[in-house]
């Protein structure tokens, strides 16, 4: 708010009216919008506590009595405990793999000079044009041929090489002042030591941001697990939703359980977003 005491009155009036009451409208609008955004999930959470009878009463939007019962049923009878574990393992493997491989690759691309360096970088970037749907058929065939279907290896390997991560880390490394790098060179420090003791500590924010983004996108992956996993016990949580939605006698889905499953599956990425939002925002928004 500008210092209104030094500004002539007519201007004061205009500033106050354009900023004063419009703030009220702004906040009101925002609260309304946010309520709309949250409403469906809030309802889902409420429904996840109801008994099946209650959930079929359309006008019953009040918390029910079956919270513990619903969630334990979903976790154990419907195997969501197992599915979520699978999702965690998948996410962990993918994240660790992506981080290690991309950091190494970015180091090579920034701190070395060799023939075809640009070409290799563009070859990596070019893979952005090859999202899963464009390669899914042969990928499936490949996994079938090498016997990796239905395994963690098959589930995770298509995701580990990441052009985006390489691109982001390369950009991050390039922003480190040349004099810091030259100081290390003058001391004869080797590349791995340099990566571990200098580059990674100086890139913590971006690493955290990339990790958060990767967790969310890996956890939320649907199509590839659907295709690559055959035994239900090996399946990830997202596809588990498909299972639980299809249960129940014809036309009689236990929606309270489905909602509970949905809430369960939502929680981990939501927590990651909330905890790491600063890093995620600066990585995506570009340094703020």
């Amino acid at each position: 708010m500008p210092d209104v005491s030094i500004v002539p009155d007519t201007v004061n009036e205009r500033l106050l009216t354009t900023t004063g009451d419009s703030q009220l409208a702004t906040h009101a609008a925002l609260w309304l919008i946010i309520s709309v955004l949250i409403l469906p999930i809030a309802l889902a959470a409420v429904y996840s506590t109801q008994t099946t009878n209650a959930v079929y009463q359309i006008t019953n939007v009040f918390p029910g009595s079956a919270l513990v019962e619903n969630y334990t049923t979903v976790l154990f009878e419907y195997n969501f405990g197992q599915y979520m574990w699978n999702s965690f393992v998948m996410a962990t493997v993918v994240i660790v793999g992506k981080l290690v491989f991309s950091l190494l690759a970015a180091t090579a691309l920034v701190y070395y000079d060799f023939r075809f360096q640009s070409l290799i970088f563009y070859a990596i970037l070019f893979t952005l044009l090859m999202p899963l749907p464009v390669r899914i058929v042969p990928l499936y065939q490949l996994m079938a041929d090498i016997g990796w279907l239905n395994s963690f290896a098959g589930l995770t390997s298509p995701f580990i090489a990441s052009a985006t991560a390489v691109f982001l880390f390369r950009q991050q490394f390039r922003s480190i002042p040349a004099s810091v790098v030259e100081t290390a060179k003058l001391d004869g420090i080797g590349p791995i030591q340099f990566l571990i003791n200098v580059l990674i500590p100086m890139s913590k924010g971006m690493i955290a941001g990339v990790t958060a983004i990767m967790f969310i996108s890996t956890w939320n992956a649907y199509l590839w697990p659907l295709v690559a996993i055959i035994d239900r016990t090996n399946q990830v949580a997202q596809v588990g939703l498909r299972y639980i939605q299809g249960t129940g006698a014809e036309g009689f889905v236990q929606w309270n359980l489905v909602m509970a499953a949905g809430i369960l599956v939502l929680i981990p990425p939501l927590i990651v977003l909330l905890v790491a939002r600063r890093y995620l925002l600066s990585t995506l928004g570009g340094g703020e």
């Binding site: 919008i33 997202q238 909602m259 599956v265 939502l266 990425p269």
Partner: peptide, 15 residues
């Protein structure tokens, strides 16, 4: 406002 970014699309679907 940004929390839906974390929401799996499958969850959006079933809800």
């Amino acid at each position: 406002a940004i929390w839906p970014y974390a929401m799996p699309i499958a969850v959006a679907g079933i809800v």
